[in-house]
Nucleic acid binder design. Structure first.
Length: 108
DNA sequence: GGAATGACATTTA
DNA sequence: CTAAATGCCATTC
């Protein structure tokens, strides 16, 4: 990049991580919700941010699923993502989140 | 600076 | 309901 301004604000990714770190155990959110919380429609960019997640320990990227209830993807494998979620109390069946609304964490 | 890429979403067939 | 096409936007090549 020739424009090394970066401004003073956090990168899009950092903002995503910040939001994710707010999600309590046993709750999930969607890429859409995160994007909306950042006041943008960069749904896909949110996914990219997760893929670039530098610290999976502090950032529970496994709590982010697709807006249609599907699990989506995960750096460590979808199966691993499912296991993590289930161990936190989120019911998953047939690769989809059951009672999605109940487990949904909204940033508003 | 521009093109390509992606852990998505929504609409249409 | 499933599948394909189209739109979006930040990041990376």
């Amino acid at each position: 990049m020739t424009k090394h301004l970066k401004n003073n604000r956090l990168t899009f990714n950092e903002q995503c991580y910040a939001l994710l770190s707010l999600i309590p155990k046993g709750k999930v959110t969607t890429y859409k919700a995160i994007a909306e919380a950042l006041e943008t429609k960069a749904y896909q960019a949110v996914g990219n941010a997760m893929a670039a997640n530098p610290n999976p320990i502090k950032v529970p990227c496994h709590r982010v699923v697709n807006s249609n209830g599907a699990i989506g993807n995960y750096a460590f494998g979808v199966d691993k993502k499912i296991e993590l979620l289930q161990s936190e109390g989120v019911i998953i069946q047939n690769g989809k989140v059951m009672d999605f609304k109940a487990h949904f964490f909204d940033f508003k």
